[in-house]
């Protein structure tokens, strides 16, 4: 038995502890928004958040996740997530879409850590997420747009917070 906290709820799974989180999510829990692309941390399609950090679920084993907060694309929420998804949709980033949940998870983790990343920071953060359809230019633009929207929102609320 493995206990996992996924998207805010505790799940007891009857699987071996060396099962990759990716397959626990997809096969055991039916959370298929997290994708398989390579199985060896080379593509980022399986990106989820573990305690807020972007990790590759294909090489993360469920036995190592006791007490961890796991978030998948299905449970992704909050202002940063909303800004990223809004920017992604506005830019029509997706082509086939298969890599995009992983891209979104990676971008949200980046912006949560670094609210206004420059191009180099975006490259460093996103370079592990492959997109075979080649949507890279729009991914970059959407991250800038989301950062801009979050910055504007922060500026708008700043006086209120002060008062």
């Amino acid at each position: 038995m493995v206990r996992l906290k996924i998207n805010g709820s505790v799940q007891e799974l009857d699987i071996p502890s060396d099962t990759p989180l990716l397959w626990a999510l997809r096969d055991t829990l039916g959370l298929v928004g997290t994708k398989y692309g390579c199985g060896i941390t080379q593509c980022g399609a399986c990106t989820v958040h573990v305690d807020g950090q972007a990790v590759r679920a294909c090489q993360t084993y469920v036995g190592d996740l006791v007490d961890a907060e796991i978030t998948t694309i299905e449970g992704l929420s909050g202002p940063v997530a909303d800004a990223v998804k809004t920017a992604w949709i506005a830019a029509d980033v997706a082509q086939c879409g298969y890599c995009q949940p992983g891209q979104v998870m990676q971008a949200v983790a980046l912006l949560a850590r670094e609210p206004a990343p420059d191009d180099d920071a975006i490259t460093t953060a996103m370079n592990g997420n492959l997109c075979r359809c080649g949507t890279y230019d729009r991914i970059r633009a959407a991250i800038h747009a989301a950062a801009g929207a979050l910055g504007t929102a922060a500026a708008d609320t700043a006086p209120a917070e002060k008062g």
Binding site: G33, I73, I89
Partner: peptide, 26 residues
């Protein structure tokens, strides 16, 4: 706007690898 963008952004889009049927084996 592309009508398939939202579901491809938030993980709802279903590809063959995501199809799940009762009792399905792999």
């Amino acid at each position: 706007p592309r009508p398939d963008t939202a579901e491809k952004t938030d993980g709802r889009a279903v590809y063959a690898i995501d199809v799940r049927l009762k009792g399905m084996l792999t």
